[in-house]
Design a protein around this nucleic acid. Structure first.
Lengths: 183, 183
DNA sequence: GTATAATATATAAATAATTATATATTCACG
DNA sequence: CGTGAATATATAATTATTTATATATTATAC
């Protein structure tokens, strides 16, 4: 749940809802994302539940910032969540696979167009991981503000993303060939 | 959305909510799943929206069955959905990766326990795909009730699942080694 | 013979997430 | 000089999903 992600980010230091959104978009977005509206409402609820505290930081020229920080209850919940093993696998949802499952009746060219488009998208996301995201992590590395374990864990999720996209592109290539010859 | 999955299944023939749940669990569950309660409420809404029709089939010893069938509006919506390309990638959610992202502060042995457990689970799911699900598809094949294209598309989603699990296990093996030596 | 799984449907309540808006300023680009 | 992106927060309304519960019978396993 989003709550845990927000606690995780706030454990590095106080942040506003806006900053949390930017940070998520630039780091966990390929395995966890949230809309801005959900972040704001979740933070509000977390404050009511005593997991975080907020204070207003007045600004002259822009709307005042509401800066959230994690408090002991939040820290305890984060720790508990991190320490508890996941006993079951996530039930994933992958809309594209669902479509493919039911696509036997789709026109060959329509199907190939969809497959090629999907292939391009995954190819691009793979490149994005190899360039932008990898670069983002190495910036943190040079800053020296984060420890080696953080960098190792961030790097490993990035590796996952790269391998996932590579596997997806391979699978699509195989499926494209299969459809070209058997449809 | 679930609506499309239900339309897809009902396009093969009329089914009850119960049967839809069983069928989903035995076929698309590794890329699309739903709780029984969601299936029942969604079917009810779809009937109100004119996408499906239902009729009661009386039973003596058990609760009467409500059998749903797709109607022309539902068929049209399914076709439209299948023909439209997905212009953007799904934003996936993978709780385990989120946990790993924030797990730098977790005790080494606690982390290794989690990783090994996750490895076992993915290993088992991979085997399940190679055995049960593959067998399920080949049963349909022998029945001769479904055409070659259906079997091709079902098989390809299965291949995806197998490759995904294989990749996941590999990644976990690498991460376990990394943590063993660097944590 | 007793417990549990399977067959079968359904609702209520709660939580999670998305979509759509509203407001207001600054900075960069052309 | 105007347009749009970026900075910044927030709410309302809706949709999607989960959790919990209720009911009742039959078949199977131990």
């Amino acid at each position: 749940m989003l709550k845990h992600a927000l606690l995780g980010f706030l454990s590095y230091g106080p942040m506003t809802g806006y900053e949390l959104k930017q940070t998520m978009d630039g780091s966990t977005s390929y395995f966890w994302h949230a809309k801005q509206s959900q972040i704001y409402t979740t933070l509000k609820r977390m404050e009511q539940d005593g997991l975080v505290a907020s204070e207003i930081e007045p600004q002259e020229k822009r709307p005042d910032r509401r800066v959230y920080s994690i408090n002991p209850a939040g820290q305890a919940m984060l720790r508990e969540w991190l320490d508890a093993p996941l006993l079951e696998l996530d039930q994933r949802k992958e809309l594209f696979l669902l479509k493919m499952f039911f696509s036997a009746s789709v026109n060959k060219e329509t199907l190939l167009t969809q497959l090629r488009l999907q292939r391009d998208l995954h190819q691009k996301r793979g490149e994005h991981y190899r360039n932008d995201v990898a670069n983002n992590i190495s910036v943190h590395d040079r800053e020296g503000m984060h420890n080696a374990k953080d960098l190792l864990m961030w790097g490993t999720t990035l590796t996952f993303g790269q391998r996932y996209e590579a596997m997806y592109v391979d699978w699509l290539d195989d499926l494209i060939e299969l459809v070209e010859t058997n449809f």
